[in-house]
């Protein structure tokens, strides 16, 4: 019983409604921009990019759906993403957007290549969709009195933090399972950067101009490998403290920047910073001048 009381006091501790709502607005806005910016590969399948092997929600399919139908579902996903972001009829539009985003990203990953760029975004949207993330900063909340801090706004934030930490933990576990602690000797990382640049150069694609120089050096790779493993395995141990969370998020952001610079592989969600919004009192964002007007336009009581 004492353990349960402790768990309740930590996990269900009150948090401001505006913090959770801010995470919803940021995540929704990111998702909509991402969907539109990547519409050519997320929504347009007039040219099939490979052989269809359904994953995720698309697993039951034995073959692709008509390209026009997929485009229509994609368009619906964008529209529901906008409604998710502005918080209109959120109890319906939240889960609908989560479902459609899962469908769109599943379908995109069903052509023989499983990407790892969308996973965290999708699980964050699912967690937000089934929480009270539109009790503030939403059209649903317009004209209503502001709500007090409550546990129902706290646990979704802690769930998002735990999901983020868990995703990186899995990446660390995979490295240790496959290569063991020898992954940290630096050779694996160096060979990956070299291999990535090589195969991209052999397919006439953009590859990092830095990679060729970087892989000629030995010394950076053991350091970078250790840092990677520590960041990936360390998430669950830092969630209880804001300064530690900030250091962890900064480390992960730098890690993704390094991946972008050395391999031209972009993980847009963490690189945008939005993936880490739940780790911080992000509602303070609205105090900044450019965002204040947006907040006033949404809230208008």
């Amino acid at each position: 019983m004492r353990v349960l009381r402790f768990l309740d006091s930590q996990f269900l501790a009150p948090a401001p409604a505006e913090r959770l709502a801010t995470v919803r607005v940021l995540t929704g806005a990111f998702a909509v921009i991402y969907l539109i910016a990547r519409a050519n590969v997320l929504g347009d399948f007039r040219v099939q990019p490979g052989r269809f092997v359904g994953v995720g929600l698309a697993s039951p399919l034995s073959g692709p759906v008509p390209a026009e139908l997929q485009l229509a579902v994609f368009a619906l996903c964008v529209v529901s993403g906008v409604l998710f972001t502005i918080g209109l009829r959120y109890r319906i539009t939240g889960p609908v957007f989560a479902f459609l985003l899962l469908w769109v990203t599943s379908y995109r990953n069903s052509w023989g290549m499983v990407f790892h760029t969308d996973n965290l975004l999708v699980v964050h949207v699912i967690a937000l969709a089934f929480s009270d993330a539109a009790a503030e900063l939403s059209l649903d909340a317009r004209g209503k009195t502001p709500v007090d801090d409550a546990g129902r706004f706290g646990w979704p934030l802690r769930l998002l933090m735990a999901l983020t930490a868990l995703a990186y933990l899995l990446a660390g576990i995979a490295k240790l399972k496959i290569a063991g602690l020898s992954w940290t000797d630096g050779e694996v990382l160096r060979d990956h950067i070299a291999y990535d640049a090589l195969r991209k150069s052999q397919i006439g694609s953009l590859y990092s101009p830095l990679a060729g120089h970087l892989v000629q050096l030995d010394w950076p790779f053991p350091v970078l490998s250790w840092l990677t493993i520590l960041l990936e395995l360390g998430g669950l141990f830092v969630l209880w403290s804001l300064p530690l969370r900030a250091a962890w998020a900064a480390g992960l952001w730098s890690f993704h920047l390094g991946v972008l610079i050395s391999m031209v592989i972009a993980f847009p969600y963490p690189l945008s910073g939005v993936a880490f919004a739940a780790l911080f009192p992000c509602e303070k964002l609205w105090r900044l001048r450019p965002f204040r007007a947006i907040r006033e336009a949404i809230v208008r009581r």
Partner: peptide
């Protein structure tokens, strides 16, 4: 780790010796 999927992934990228 090589039984990867979506959206539930083992995140095996960059893990194996090449």
């Amino acid at each position: 780790p090589w039984e990867d999927g979506f959206p539930l992934s083992t995140y095996p990228m960059f893990a194996q010796r090449r």
